[in-house]
Structure formats: structure tokens, C-alpha cells
Design a protein around this nucleic acid. Structure first.
Length: 111
DNA sequence: GCCATGGCTAGTA
DNA sequence: GCCATGGCTAGTA
């Protein structure tokens, strides 16, 4: 309990990216991976969300798949994610999809 | 529906 | 090994 092992670089960057998704917007796993510097590491983002969401208090519900819908299975997080998104003001259809035209996060590219 | 892809946590010994 | 992905093809209608 003395030395919490520091997260690896990609993990640190991904955490920052996830935290920067604004309320009312959603991002895809691939998008988070790309902004964090590894465009092909979408799967790793899933891993990070799976294992670190609780501990790091992440806005995990704002990350969805590239088809524009919730990836978690019904009965295994789907409902929670849907509810959390709705609390953000995001409408989620019965099939778990959201209006990407309106809701997809467009990251700021500053300097 | 298949399969290539990437970076590494959590939990135990 | 694990993972809450992604994207592309074959094979149908």
C-alpha cells in the first residue's frame, strides 16, 4: 500500500483523454486511442475502461463503439451506460445507439 | 462473422 | 493472456 505502481504512458494519456470528453458528447474507443497517440489501440482502451473506471472515477459511459452504439451487453452494463448517458442529456435509442451526428465529440486540436 | 491488432492491470505467490 | 474493438469479406437475397 506504500507505492502505487505508476501507470504506463499510454494508460496515462488515455485516462486524460477519457476525462476530457465533455458531458453531452460521446467518443469511440478508436478515437480515444488515436488522441492518446496509438490509433490502433482501441482494444487497449476497452481494457483500461474495464479495469480502471471505478478506481479512477472515469466518465466511462461516454465511450462507445465505432458503430455509434453501446458495446456492453444487456445485463452487463448496457443499462447503466444508457442511464448515465441520459443523465448527461444524451438520448439513447432502444438498440443502444446515439445520434453521432450531434453527439460525437470533436476533440480540440490546440497547438 | 472473422481475425489482426496493441499495450499492459490486477491479483496472487 | 486479456480486452467494453474495428473493419473488411464472403456469401446470400
Amino acid at each position: 500500500m506504500a507505492t502505487p505502481k505508476p501507470y504506463a504512458p499510454f494508460t496515462v494519456r488515455a485516462l486524460a483523454v477519457i476525462r476530457s470528453i465533455p458531458r453531452g458528447k460521446v467518443a469511440t474507443y478508436a478515437q480515444v486511442a488515436a488522441v492518446a497517440g496509438s490509433p490502433l489501440a482501441a482494444r487497449q482502451v476497452a481494457r483500461i475502461l474495464h479495469s480502471l473506471s471505478r478506481k479512477e472515477r472515469l466518465p466511462w459511459h461516454r465511450v462507445i463503439n465505432s458503430r455509434g452504439s453501446i458495446s456492453l451487453p444487456r445485463g452487463a452494463g448496457f443499462e447503466q451506460q444508457k442511464a448515465a448517458l441520459q443523465r448527461d442529456g444524451v438520448k439513447v435509442k432502444e438498440d443502444g445507439s446515439v445520434d453521432m451526428k450531434r453527439r460525437l465529440w470533436v476533440p480540440r486540436i490546440d497547438a
